[in-house]
């Protein structure tokens, strides 16, 4: 697909045709999506992509690197998974259910559904505790096995 240097590159005409079709349909829907409040809708659409790629990804990648680095520093890089998994799962639940867990919709939620909006924070904390607790148990079990394996290893015969 690469053109010699200097010539204008078009790329695959089939791909160009495909994107033309795609943009035509997307455009047809987009003029309806944007409606009267076009700026705010466009801001949401583009903003979410920017927020994800330039804030969320660096944030969790940085947190992960910090954990790996800290454990690496104490010589236990292989423990990373025992922190990463419960932390990421807990963060995932918080990300998805943030409006309920943070309580920001609690009043509206209660008045609409009669259900208590105050339980979500404690439920999330409990799930988080179970995740970290389970992970800690697994780590302890692994360490015990390792210790037993080193103890029981028969002396090397010469």
């Amino acid at each position: 697909m690469r053109r010699p240097f200097g010539k204008p590159a078009l790329g695959s005409p089939l791909h160009i045709l495909l994107f033309a079709c795609s943009f035509a349909l997307a455009g047809y829907a987009a003029v309806r999506l944007l409606g009267d409040d076009w700026f705010e809708v466009a801001l949401w659409f583009v903003g979410l992509a920017v927020l994800h790629d330039l804030v969320l990804v660096p944030l969790y990648a940085g947190a992960d690197r910090a954990v790996t680095g800290a454990l690496d520093g104490v010589g236990h890089r292989e423990w990373t998974v025992y922190v990463r998994v419960p932390a990421a799962l807990s963060a995932l639940l918080l990300l998805v259910w943030f409006p309920l867990i943070s309580g920001q919709v609690a009043d509206h939620y209660r008045s609409a559904t009669v259900l208590s909006g105050d339980d979500f924070l404690s439920r999330w904390l409990l799930i988080t505790a179970v995740l970290f607790g389970g992970s800690a148990l697994l780590l302890v079990r692994r360490l015990r096995r390792l210790r037993r394996a080193t103890k029981e290893r028969p002396p090397v015969a010469h």
Binding site: R3, A9, H15, I16, F19, F23, W44, F45, L48
Partner: peptide
């Protein structure tokens, strides 16, 4: 790198923005 590639990158903005918009 080419016109097709430029169109693909614009399309990816619709893809990623669209997915996040729908899920959110």
């Amino acid at each position: 790198r080419s016109l097709a590639h430029a169109l693909e990158r614009i399309s990816l903005l619709l893809l990623v923005g669209g997915a996040l918009f729908e899920f959110t």
